[in-house]
């Protein structure tokens, strides 16, 4: 179980983005998290993956705090894969930074071996996102947090990527948190949809600017 218990987080000198937040994903479970942008979903993703340390509360993975300095059992996939690859490295090196996937994993993600000898700027977002996934789809990964993972991709690539990820998660009992504003997508892939960030009832009229608040 990946658990956040009464987690609070804010950046320097800003109001709380998350305040006393509880959240959990079980092994092998796919949880959908919908909601409008700017409400802290991405911050939650980063806190759960250990990229950000919460000021209060704790994140635990299977009962233990997230380990430091080793391959983390909780891995985060971002919306923009091009930012997660060192632009000066060939993709072979970037992928190997995580683990060395076997040919079957590449095949499932439809990754052409030729991509590995290229640089990130030579590939498209859809191609890079699949390489980013191959990098973390290791047996050591217990939970995968997909923050708008396929928001930049066309429907065909999106379906292909989710097919590969769900297949891998099922085979390895990996828990997935899927953050997306696309309800239809979450209905397709998630076992359970968490409404923490979704506005209750019919969507209220558009809120105005932050400055006025």
């Amino acid at each position: 179980m990946l658990k956040a218990e009464s987690v609070s987080f804010c950046y320097d000198n800003t109001p709380w983005i998350l305040e006393g937040f509880d959240f959990g994903v079980g092994p092998g479970e796919v949880v959908g998290l919908p909601g409008p942008s700017g409400q802290g979903k991405s911050t939650l993703a980063k806190v759960l993956a250990g990229h950000l340390a919460p000021q209060q509360g704790a994140v635990t993975c299977d009962g233990r705090p997230l380990p430091e300095g080793v391959f983390s059992p909780v891995q985060l996939i971002f919306q923009h894969p091009e930012l997660t690859m060192n632009p000066r490295w060939k993709l072979r090196d970037s992928v190997a930074e995580g683990h060395t996937p076997d040919a079957a994993a590449f095949k499932r993600l439809n990754i052409e071996p030729a991509w590995l000898s290229r640089y990130p700027h030579e590939l498209s977002g859809g191609e890079l996102q699949r390489l980013a996934l191959a990098r973390v789809m290791s047996p050591q990964t217990r939970y995968l947090i997909a923050d708008e993972m396929t928001a930049m991709l066309d429907p065909n690539t999106q379906a292909l990527v989710w097919d590969a990820v769900l297949h891998w998660a099922k085979a390895n009992g990996v828990g997935i948190l899927a953050i997306s504003h696309d309800r239809h997508l979450l209905d397709r892939i998630a076992h359970r949809v968490d409404e923490s960030f979704a506005p209750p009832g019919p969507t209220p009229p558009e809120t105005t600017c932050r400055a006025a608040a």
Binding site: A49, V70, F71, S72, L76, T84, R88, G98, V136
Partner: peptide, 26 residues
């Protein structure tokens, strides 16, 4: 703060390794 450095850390790379392989070439 770069995402690829954050990711590298979570992939289990040490600060020294990141400094040498990611930061120095930049």
């Amino acid at each position: 703060q770069a995402e690829f450095v954050m990711v590298s850390r979570k992939l289990g790379r040490s600060p020294w390794w990141i400094a040498r392989r990611h930061m120095l070439p930049h």
